[in-house]
Simulated scan of single mutants.
Amino acid sequence: MRLRLLVLACLLAPSANAITFQTRLENAQWQVEGDQFECRLSQAIAGFGKGEFVRRAGEQPTFRLQSPDRWFGTGAATLLAAAAPWQPERNDLNLGVVSVAGGDIPFNSSQLQAGRLLTGLLEGRSPVIRHRTLQGGDALEVRLLPARFGKAYEDFRVCTTKLLPVNFEQIRQSQIGFPAGDIALDALGQAKLDIILQFLKADPSVNVIQLDGHSDNSGNRLTNRDLSRRRALSVEAYLIANGVPKEQITVRFHGERYPLVPNSSEANRAKNRRVTLRLDRGPAAVSATAAPTAPAS
């Protein structure tokens, strides 16, 4: 074991023309934090900040670095799953580039890259990021270590089982469809609303709900306007029946005036028969019945 540590220290020592950040092997620790909105699996990097995997509700994990000193220059950094020094039969895996934009969090990897990094860590590989410094353009390498990763990864997986099925960005504007000529919610519409209701119960700060009813152009204007109104009211009634205060909901209706797509086919008309549900944070909206000039689409 002492020989392994000696080899590791030699191979990971910064070269004369490079700046390298990593935590000493004996100090490397992985930490898991999270709630029903987000889970994080991180390792502190001595002198730099930290690297972390972040899985938000409704998404797969991504990988990122955080550094208050903003070491990275802008451009494309190389992301590697580096082989352990005591496994000479393995090569480093080049996972491609990440786009560095600067700031405290210089980049976020793709979900595919993060998945391959997690697999690599379970195999004893190290996430490595190679780039250039913001000042001077010197070669820069940041490395995380796989030490004590297995138990932390299991804790991370347990955290992810408690995540909500969606995050706010995924539902802040949703479409609830309706069959032709119908005003009743079908099973798919109820299922969509049930997911939204689950999020609303978890995050009471989302307390502004705007409903915009729409129709296709199959009927006359008055019939279409009434259909769009009754569809919006059907969604409102479902939300209220499931615990949403009525004062948090604004209902508007527009008939056929604002189609998503041209009413040129049955498939397109089906897309236009909808209620758009828009969520926001703030004081409860005041109910309004006047049609707006720019409705939610």
Rank of each mutant, 00 (worst) to 15 (best):
A184K: 10
A202I: 09
L200E: 05
F199Q: 03
F168Q: 10
D186G: 09
Q190I: 00
A187F: 01
F199G: 02
E169V: 05
F199A: 02
R172F: 05
A202W: 05
R172N: 14
I183A: 11
I171R: 13
K192R: 08
A184D: 07
L197G: 07
F199W: 02
Q170V: 06
D194Y: 02
Q170T: 10
S174K: 13
A187K: 07
I195N: 05
R172E: 14
K201L: 00
L197C: 06
G189F: 02
P165Q: 14
Q175G: 06
I195Y: 08
A187D: 07
L188I: 07
I195Q: 09
L188V: 12
L185G: 01
Q170W: 04
I171S: 09
Q190V: 00
Q170G: 10
E169N: 13
N167F: 10
Q190C: 00
L185Q: 05
Q173Y: 12
Q173L: 11
G181N: 15
P165F: 12
A191M: 10
A184T: 09
R172K: 15
L193K: 06
G181Q: 14
F168P: 09
Q190W: 00
K201H: 03
Q198R: 15
Q170A: 11
G189T: 09
K201W: 00
A184I: 05
A184W: 04
P165D: 12
D194C: 08
F168H: 13
G181K: 14
D186C: 11
I195E: 05
E169I: 04
Q173S: 14
F168S: 08
D182I: 15
Q175R: 12
Q198Y: 00
A180C: 03
K192G: 00
L188K: 10
F178L: 04
K201N: 04
P165K: 15
L197H: 00
I183Q: 14
I176H: 02
I195H: 03
A202E: 06
G181A: 10
L193N: 04
S174P: 08
P179H: 04
N167V: 13
I195F: 09
A184Q: 11
Q170N: 07
A187S: 11
L193D: 06
F178Q: 14
S174T: 15
L193H: 05
K192L: 01
A191F: 10
A191I: 06
A202L: 06
S174C: 08
N167H: 11
F199R: 04
Q198P: 01
A184L: 09
A202T: 06
N167A: 13
F178W: 06
P179D: 05
Q173N: 10
I171W: 05
V166P: 01
K192Q: 04
A191E: 13
A191R: 14
Q173H: 13
Q173K: 13
K192C: 00
P179V: 09
P179C: 01
A180S: 08
R172Y: 07
A191W: 04
A180D: 10
E169F: 04
G177A: 12
V166M: 04
L185M: 07
G181P: 08
D194F: 03
Q190M: 03
F168V: 08
K192E: 03
K201G: 01
L185H: 00
